[in-house]
């Protein structure tokens, strides 16, 4: 099982690189995984255009739990940039929403994982991320695009659906993380 293990190689020492080569490769694979999920889930029919399962955050969560906050942030930024290029939405309003939502959600997840890891498991962290993601987007839409208070009519739908999607994403990430046995290394 030795080769299945992913080791924590994040280094704060400036003389050694931030990530080892093997970690770097695995992070690239995670970006690829997130990119595929990101693109594929745009083809899933949804009841409302802005209700997305957010499955791409599986990659973020795995990176966060396997390699730490910086890795998660790098994975999320790379995934969103590449996803925007693939979908052809680079630098349009949807991209700005996606980018800011993704980064804020990842920062919150990293913060809660760092300081409240005894309070919240991966499920709680993921639900926090999903809720923060949708709320950031909602605030940005209200501020930049629609500029109306009525957009907050969507808030109950957003909160309740992101509890569900956050749970699903956490479940998938949990299955992946427990398969590659990094939970025991990390905690």
């Amino acid at each position: 099982m030795e080769k299945n293990k992913i080791f924590l190689t994040l280094s704060h020492n400036k003389e050694t690189p931030l990530f080892s080569n093997s970690t770097f490769t695995r992070l690239s694979l995670l970006v690829g995984l997130g990119l595929i999920l990101f693109v594929v889930e745009t083809f899933i029919p949804r009841p409302l255009p802005w209700l997305k399962p957010g499955l791409a955050h599986v990659a973020t969560l795995v990176a966060l739990y396997g390699y730490g906050s910086r890795a998660a942030l790098i994975v999320v930024v790379a995934r969103i940039m590449l996803g925007a290029i693939v979908l052809g939405t680079l630098f349009n309003p949807a991209f700005i929403l996606s980018f800011s939502g993704g980064i804020t959600a990842t920062l919150f997840m990293a913060f809660f994982k760092q300081y409240f890891s005894k309070v919240f498991s991966i499920f709680g962290i993921s639900i926090i991320g999903a809720v923060i993601h949708t709320l950031t987007q909602l605030f940005l839409v209200a501020l930049l695009i629609v500029q109306k208070i009525e957009i907050f009519y969507l808030m109950p739908v957003m909160i309740l659906s992101s509890i569900f999607t956050g749970f699903v994403v956490a479940f998938v990430s949990y299955l992946i993380i427990s398969k590659i046995e990094i939970i025991s290394l990390n905690s």
Partner: peptide, 17 residues
């Protein structure tokens, strides 16, 4: 697997929603 914190979080969010 859910911790007490998780359950409280979900309950709070459902109430908020």
């Amino acid at each position: 697997l859910l911790t007490t914190g998780d359950k409280l979080l979900v309950a709070m969010l459902i109430i908020l929603g």
